[in-house]
Design a protein around this nucleic acid. Sequence first.
DNA 1: TTGATTTATTGGAACGTTCCATCTATAGGC
DNA 2: GCCTATAGATGGAACGTTCCAATAAATCAA
Lengths: 350, 350
Amino acid sequence: MASRAKATILDIAREAGVSKSTVSLVLQGSGLIRPETAVKVRKAIEDVGYVYNRGAANLRKAHSNVIGMVINDLTNPFFAELAVGMERVFQAAGIVPFIANTAENPVRQEEVLKSLLEQGVAGLIVSPARGTTPGAFRRIETAGVPIVFTMRRLPESRIPVIAPDNHRGAFIATEHLIRKGHRRLAFFGGSSDLVVYQQRLGGFLEACETQGIPVANRTIVEGETSRKGGMACLETALAAPEPPSAALCFNDAVAFGVMLALRKRGLEAGADFAVVGFDDVAEAEHYMPALTSVAVDTAGLGERAAHVMLKMIQARTTRAEDHIGAVSLVVRESCGPSRSARGTGMGDAA
Amino acid sequence: MASRAKATILDIAREAGVSKSTVSLVLQGSGLIRPETAVKVRKAIEDVGYVYNRGAANLRKAHSNVIGMVINDLTNPFFAELAVGMERVFQAAGIVPFIANTAENPVRQEEVLKSLLEQGVAGLIVSPARGTTPGAFRRIETAGVPIVFTMRRLPESRIPVIAPDNHRGAFIATEHLIRKGHRRLAFFGGSSDLVVYQQRLGGFLEACETQGIPVANRTIVEGETSRKGGMACLETALAAPEPPSAALCFNDAVAFGVMLALRKRGLEAGADFAVVGFDDVAEAEHYMPALTSVAVDTAGLGERAAHVMLKMIQARTTRAEDHIGAVSLVVRESCGPSRSARGTGMGDAA
DNA sequence: TTGATTTATTGGAACGTTCCATCTATAGGC
DNA sequence: GCCTATAGATGGAACGTTCCAATAAATCAA
């Protein structure tokens, strides 16, 4: 129970027989203090069970050391990986990021942002929720708090974005499927209100165009970006008179759902239907069959976002450049056996 | 860019032609204010782009509305599910929980807790990192901040714990395996420095005892609580002269690893070797084969923890009762086909 | 010795809020 | 007309820190 009233630097000052200013200096690790004095003060701090009141300090300092990470879906392992990447960087910089989840709900997002702002965050890293209104970040911008978007961008905003090269990722994945001999292709999952969706779908379509897949042979099924959504997509697609033989999925969760639905129908991913995912979450490698996916270097993107944020805070600016991360296709089993036997001379490695 | 200096209630007061006290009252939704005045003030707030400074407010009020959730491994979907359960409750109560990840690192945990405390949290929900020293929470307790542990408990601490009935879960899972006819059993993953481990292992051993499985037929392999750890456990166990035919795993991640290792050896979980997990994460149902697991009602535990925390804050106490959640075995494919044909008269449903 | 410089320490005025005690109208009762 | 209520609004003193300017003590240059 200790003392009821919380100890302040004045209590410590009294205990150590110095002034509050001295205590404050010690707390900030100032070199101006005589070592013996510092020791004395630190002992008093320990004895008294003092806890620093950052709120009071921020009142004067006007720049906190907390950064908010606002994430749209914490249960998606992809975002957990992203968060871990950011944390690595922030930890090294001695600052603690607080994570808040919006569960893809713009209203909740509003609350979360408000709360973080009131708390006096130094910066915000945000993966905006679906359906975020264009003006949602106006307030934060005028408050002068630096923001970085990750993964998703808002249609017309000028807030810097850290994201993978979605277009190219979808392009190379689709190209790969076509080279495998598939001529009827599908794009599964996601919805067109997301910029990311348009980018990935764009890459898919461009590859179809380039490789001469006629429009009639392209199936596009929107759906939830979850296993359940993926299952539904496959059902829809297979119900068509001339169903596709391969699909690029909006993300890995959708791909897992597609594979699940295939299995339910007694079909095998890879042999009977080629499936490619997007994001390459850790699980992809361990799935059965292992999922071919577009690797986006998730943790690396997180680290990059954190670095950009630190730079912005340091430079006291709210502007920064976008960063588009490189992507690569990780070929595993779900897109069919390697056709190396055909000896086309084009390795899958590229 | 707007105005450089942040607006305060005094700016609003000037703008609206009232006193700062009036603005403060409006901000708190006091009924003492004439509606027209409130409207006027709210308009000024909007015009000026004011953001509330909670730090300054807490300086007077001495109780914040932020709650910290300290989680030991965010990449484990289990904890994400737990966090989501808590968030549901807190959201309804109008408070925003901040999540911080310790990545199972006691040093990081120390930093995170310190930061949260300095921020003036009203309460802390913690799943302590492995290797947490007994005194790690002393400071927080003396500060009078309510804490609740989830999932894990510290050896001798008197901090309330919300956790599933680990012993019983392991017991019923083991009993199930024995009833299926297995006589050589293993317990895979985890390490003995965790109280949870001792509870789950205890349940396993008690079931072996009760059902007459001799000590020589029990294999216990400690290991990392991850897929990789699970793979290693299986390899170790199968190298023995008389290997087990079934395993209860410390958690689902370990179980997934075990199934993966089985597949690598050309064996099939369920048919060749029975696997049971613990936690019943969402993925378990969708795995191939679907994983039999001990369901702990993860989100429910999260909700319960949040409720207990709210009660503690409200009652201004730092004491609360433990809560042990009910568990149930969800039988799927990974523990072998149902032997209903044998007609033992004992259904699996119980 | 004196004055200048350096080294440690310190009081006091912010910072943006809340809340208590006051104050001013206006209304009502007689 | 006076007194008392009541509703609405307000000034001022905290809250726990930082930081500037000032001080005191010690060191040094001459």
